[in-house]
Computed example of a mutant assay.
Amino acid sequence: MRSFYEFLMTYRGKKHPDDQSRLADWAFRDHNFPKHSSDYHEISNYLEWNSPFSNALKIFDELWDIYSF
């Protein structure tokens, strides 16, 4: 199974950014993001402490549902 970060990178670099691409672009630039993790709690905890924008956790949960399906 690929890491969540690898999955998230498929949302990167949109010409007209949406919240999913904003989260992906931020994770790409954040050198401390848990790039090799596939653990919901590890990534969720990281985002709780380092949230790049107000609804980032909501977007993460939406993307996690797609990722884990």
Rank of each mutant, 00 (worst) to 15 (best):
D65Y: 04
A24T: 00
E6I: 05
L57D: 03
F69V: 01
F69K: 15
S51Y: 09
Y67Q: 00
S3K: 02
H41V: 13
Y46C: 13
P17K: 12
F69E: 14
L57K: 06
N45G: 13
D61S: 13
R29A: 14
H31P: 08
A24P: 07
F53S: 15
F60E: 00
Y11L: 05
F33A: 10
H31C: 08
R2V: 01
N55F: 02
S44M: 14
I59G: 03
H41A: 15
D30C: 15
E62Y: 10
R29I: 02
N50V: 07
E42W: 08
W26A: 03
M1K: 13
I59T: 15
G13A: 02
L63R: 00
E62H: 06
W49S: 11
F28Q: 10
K58D: 15
F4D: 00
I43Q: 05
E6L: 05
W26E: 00
I66F: 04
Y5T: 04
L57T: 03
Y11M: 01
W26P: 06
E6F: 08
A24N: 08
H41I: 06
A56G: 05
L8R: 07
T10W: 04
K14S: 12
S68W: 01
F7E: 02
S3G: 03
D39F: 08
L8Y: 06
S68I: 15
L57M: 09
Y5K: 04
R22T: 01
I59A: 09
R12C: 01
S68E: 09
W26S: 07
P17N: 06
A27T: 06
I59Y: 01
M9W: 05
W64C: 03
N55G: 02
S3P: 09
M1Y: 09
L57Q: 14
L63Y: 00
A27I: 05
P34I: 11
F4P: 03
S68L: 03
G13D: 08
F28V: 04
Y5E: 04
N55E: 10
N50T: 07
N50L: 07
F33C: 11
H16E: 12
F53M: 10
L23H: 09
L57F: 04
K58F: 15
I43K: 11
P52F: 04
D61F: 06
L23C: 12
G13M: 02
D39L: 11
L23V: 02
W64Y: 05
W26G: 05
E48G: 02
N45W: 10
P52R: 12
S51N: 11
S3W: 01
F69C: 03
S38Q: 07
F69W: 10
F53H: 13
E62N: 12
W64E: 00
